[in-house]
Design a protein around this nucleic acid. Structure first.
Length: 273
DNA sequence: AGAGCTGTTACCAA
DNA sequence: TTTGGTAACAGCTC
């Protein structure tokens, strides 16, 4: 779930929840290892009394700007989710961190405990290690082609490398490559100028469509990423992910599932050469 | 019951 | 530089 469109949906929801401007009255950590770069005590003490200045997204990170130049970065990893609830609400089975405001509290829930929260003095440590955002206007088709041209890795694992491009995950990488009719195992440098331009367009189109539909929810919806518990509606737009043996929507050839870089990979062997 | 799958990333070794 | 293996966890499906 939590790839760029899902994280973007969470950020938009949090911004429209009226969270911005509110002071944090208390923070509680129920699973210590969720706090990645400081102790539970330091984290709780540091954020107490700070106000939420803004909520942004960088790649798959939720970036919460606090007063006094503090930055909280939240990564949902596989099963993390955020929800804003009444502070009276009882603690959930999978709640790992609770940030309380006066009447409401932001709960970080995460069954698999992979999600991470970091507290930083500046945003650079996170921002600098990530590649460009797919929607970055500085990422022109020329820049994109040159970036691909210098790499001999297979295109799919490269798209999943967050230091190369920030935000794509397994679902949207497969969908973007299908949309661009590019085989996931093509060496990145083998893409022509035209193919690379089509790929960038495809990535942007796939992500834009997914954001409009509030992301993709898989499974039964438990531990869903959205802050209000609603499911993302993008699953109906998926054309290859999770569709192995089903007919390709372009040519009716059965969709194949292979493993590329230890990740399940779905593609059409006829359309993606 | 048990094996194998999963949306992510960090780290290590070759 | 690139690839593969493992690990962090827990729930789900078959």
């Amino acid at each position: 779930m939590p790839e760029l469109p899902e994280v973007e949906t969470v950020c938009r929801d949090l911004r429209s929840c009226g969270l911005i401007g509110k002071p944090i009255t208390q923070a509680t950590v129920l699973w210590d290892r969720t706090i990645q770069n400081s102790t539970t005590e330091t984290f709780c003490h540091s954020v107490q009394g700070k106000r939420i200045i803004d909520i942004r997204r960088r790649g798959k990170y939720i970036h919460i700007l606090l007063s006094d130049s503090l930055h909280v970065f939240i990564h949902l990893r596989m099963t993390g989710s955020l929800s804003l609830v009444s502070s009276e609400m009882g603690i959930g089975q999978y709640d790992r961190v609770i940030i309380t405001f006066n009447e409401s509290s932001l709960r970080f829930s995460d069954p698999r405990k992979f999600g991470r929260i970091m507290l930083c003095d500046s945003q650079t440590s996170i921002y600098d290690k990530l590649g460009p955002d797919p929607f970055d206007p500085l990422l022109t088709t020329d820049v994109w082609f040159e970036r691909l041209h210098g790499r001999q890795m297979r295109i799919k694992p490269l798209l999943l490398d967050q230091s190369f491009l920030a935000g794509l995950g397994n679902i949207y990488a497969d969908e973007s490559l299908f949309s661009a009719s590019i085989h996931p195992c093509r060496p990145a440098h083998s893409l022509s100028r035209d193919e690379s331009a089509v790929l960038l367009e495809s990535i942007r189109h796939i992500l834009t469509t997914a954001i409009i539909h509030r992301g993709t929810s898989l499974g039964d919806g438990k531990g869903n990423f959205t802050s209000n518990g609603d499911r993302g509606e993008n699953i109906s737009n998926l054309r290859v992910y999770g569709k192995s043996t089903r007919p390709c929507p372009k040519c009716s050839t059965p969709i194949q599932r292979i493993v590329v870089g230890q990740r399940g990979t779905h593609y059409c062997p006829n359309c993606q050469k």
